[in-house]
Computed example of a mutant assay.
Amino acid sequence: MAHERKTSGARTHRAGAFDVRAIIALLLGIYGVVLLVMGIGFTSEADLERAAGVNINLWTGLALTVAALLFVAWARWRPILVPDDEAEQEQAG
Results as ranks from 00 to 15, higher is better:
A22Y: 11
T43W: 04
V54G: 05
L28V: 01
A92S: 12
A51Q: 15
P83V: 08
L69R: 01
V54S: 09
A68P: 01
A10L: 12
V20N: 07
G32H: 04
G61C: 05
A52Q: 13
D47S: 11
R11K: 09
G41P: 00
G9V: 04
G61K: 07
P83F: 06
L81N: 06
G16Y: 06
M1D: 09
L48P: 00
P83M: 08
I30G: 06
A46T: 14
L64D: 02
P83A: 13
E90Y: 06
V20D: 08
R11A: 08
I24A: 14
I30E: 07
Q91A: 15
A52P: 03
I24T: 06
A25Y: 02
R76T: 03
M1C: 10
V37D: 00
T7G: 00
I23V: 13
R76D: 00
D84Y: 10
D47H: 12
R14E: 08
Q89K: 09
L70G: 08
I56E: 14
G39P: 00
I80S: 02
T7D: 09
L36P: 01
E4V: 10
G53Q: 05
T43Y: 01
A17Q: 11
G9D: 02
L35F: 11
F18P: 00
V82M: 12
S8P: 00
I56N: 10
V82Y: 06
Q91W: 11
G32N: 08
L36F: 04
G93H: 10
T7I: 14
R21K: 09
V72D: 00
L69I: 05
R78L: 00
A51V: 06
T60E: 04
M38I: 08
W59H: 09
D85M: 07
S44A: 08
L70I: 13
L81D: 07
